[in-house]
């Protein structure tokens, strides 16, 4: 069973305690200045956005089939069976393909560092291992951020929409997007307002399939292409053989 986070923005009061708890747990600085920053960065893995009295969290979605893990040439990212998508800094070569590939633009970079790391929410795998909830879920005073089994959270999200259809847009973000994510979102206003790409844009299939379709053809393509190239070589050089044969014939050799 895989863990997940359900964030219900209608319950959120915008207190940003999740931001603070996240920073503390990850050993990041946090103060009034950082609290006022409205975008994620290498020192802010999650952010509570505000727009017309509506709140929305941004954090790594922990895709079931993460693009970052599939594109990394050295496999520095992987999805754990418990749910979190984690990062092994000691493998990273710093190509930043993960940042370009992520549909949610979650991996951030230490641009000022001389030995830079990719930074993002890793869903507190250490706490999950101990059987605890993520730091943000523990800190949330209203239950807007809830930690649990993803399947249970999905059912709960469906129930909440069914019981209060007027409160929500009829969509659980993360249920189908990019083939499903461990983080699920509920909102009263369209998710696109907060920078979440619509399912029409990112699709409901895992993004790695887009490159996987091409990559899986490579092993078949190699022998085929070598054969074609060899064939071209043989055909193109055959005229020399023909010329040699003609020369023999002219001399009245083998007829």
């Amino acid at each position: 069973m895989s863990k997940g986070i359900l964030y219900d923005s209608t319950l959120c009061i915008g207190c940003k305690l999740c931001e603070k708890a996240c920073a503390e747990h990850n050993g990041l600085p946090y103060n009034d200045g950082i609290a006022a920053e409205s975008k994620q960065s290498e020192h802010k893995f999650t952010v509570v956005l505000t727009e017309n009295d509506h709140f929305m969290r941004r954090l790594c979605m922990h895709c079931d089939e993460p693009a970052c893990a599939s594109v990394c040439p050295v496999g520095a990212f992987h999805k754990t069976s418990a749910g979190p998508v984690v990062y092994d800094v000691w493998k990273c070569i710093g190509c930043r393909y993960c940042m370009v590939a992520c549909a949610f633009a979650q991996p951030k970079y230490e641009w000022g560092s001389l030995n830079p790391r990719v930074r993002k929410c890793i869903m507190c795998p250490d706490l999950i291992k101990k059987g605890e909830a993520t730091a943000c879920a523990q800190a949330c005073p209203t239950g807007a951020t809830k930690f649990g089994e993803r399947d249970d959270l999905l059912k709960e999200a469906e129930d909440r929409i069914r019981q209060n259809p007027g409160n929500y847009v009829n969509h659980i973000y993360g249920k189908d997007e990019v083939g499903g994510t461990s983080v699920l979102l509920l909102s009263a206003v369209p998710f696109e307002q907060f920078g979440y790409p619509s399912v029409a844009k990112v699709g409901d299939k895992a993004l790695p399939e887009l490159t996987g379709r091409v990559m899986e053809k490579v092993p078949d393509f190699i022998p085929l292409w070598v054969l074609v190239l060899g064939g071209v070589y043989w055909l193109a050089h055959r005229k020399e053989e023909v010329a040699a044969a003609e020369a023999i014939e002219k001399q009245g050799g083998v007829a």
Partner: peptide
């Protein structure tokens, strides 16, 4: 590369799913 001194990691931590690796 952010960490060019680890460019050789490509040879040991191979990820065959990655286009970049190919």
């Amino acid at each position: 590369l952010g960490r060019p001194w680890f460019i050789w990691h490509q040879l040991i931590y191979m990820n065959p799913h990655s286009v970049m690796f190919e």
